[in-house]
Write a protein that binds this DNA or RNA. Sequence first.
DNA 1: ATAAACCTTAAAGTACACTCTAAGGCAAGA
DNA 2: TCTTGCCTTAGAGTGTACTTTAAGGTTTAT
Lengths: 130, 130
Amino acid sequence: MNIKEVAQKYDLTADTLRYYEKVGLIPKVNRNEVGYRDFTEEDTNWVEFAKCMRNAGMSIEALSEYVALFQKGDSTIAQRKKILLDQQAIMAEKLKDMQATYDRLTKKVDNYDNHIAKFEEEKLENIEHA
Amino acid sequence: MNIKEVAQKYDLTADTLRYYEKVGLIPKVNRNEVGYRDFTEEDTNWVEFAKCMRNAGMSIEALSEYVALFQKGDSTIAQRKKILLDQQAIMAEKLKDMQATYDRLTKKVDNYDNHIAKFEEEKLENIEHA
DNA sequence: ATAAACCTTAAAGTACACTCTAAGGCAAGA
DNA sequence: TCTTGCCTTAGAGTGTACTTTAAGGTTTAT
């Protein structure tokens, strides 16, 4: 699979894929006879994983370290597991915060509904925020 | 309350507060006789709200528009509500993605545990990712 | 055989969201 | 009164994560 096809498949640009390879978010991709990248299925699995983790907020630093450790083999399993656990903790915190903010927005929208109702009755008052 | 106290209270820098005011993430703060900002409780509520929403990923564009509309008064209530609902939809999507990634990490860590066990028995095999 | 559409690299450029600097004024303690 | 520690602004600088450019080679269709 050439770089353009992979880019289309995962909704990234070819530039971004080259950048991800350069900074180690995915392992080095093998090249064909003329030097073009030829992505295997394993390569594209790494692309999907990198996109997913970046999307979830994992740092380039942590992810590239994970990838580098992976390539060093089984002796790095414990270190890799720690990176994943650390990332899970970060995400758990983020999920908690976002859920709280989501709930807060729900209440705020409710207040707006009440206020719009009042507004339409021409009983104007101040809203939550004032 | 002066800018430093507010910064400390919300774990932001004074520079960030000035920046937030400049780009409209919070309404303009009143000044004392010599031109120093003097934050009221309402001002600090806006600071807390801005920090919370930025943290949850709300764009500066959407949030500053919300603040601007708020200052225009009750005639903008419907527009403000729409901004909040749009933001809620964005956050719902994000929460869904992050939860899925969190669950994926949980499974991956489980695989590592199994693999570590095997590794310790000296039965080395490939892990999920290979 | 030539144009269009791919691919390569290194390096420069961009957008975002701050963050810092310079130059100066105000306020409180020794 | 002088030093320390606040405050102000405009504008320059920074870090992150791409994104574009320049210069060139390859492949495919006409």
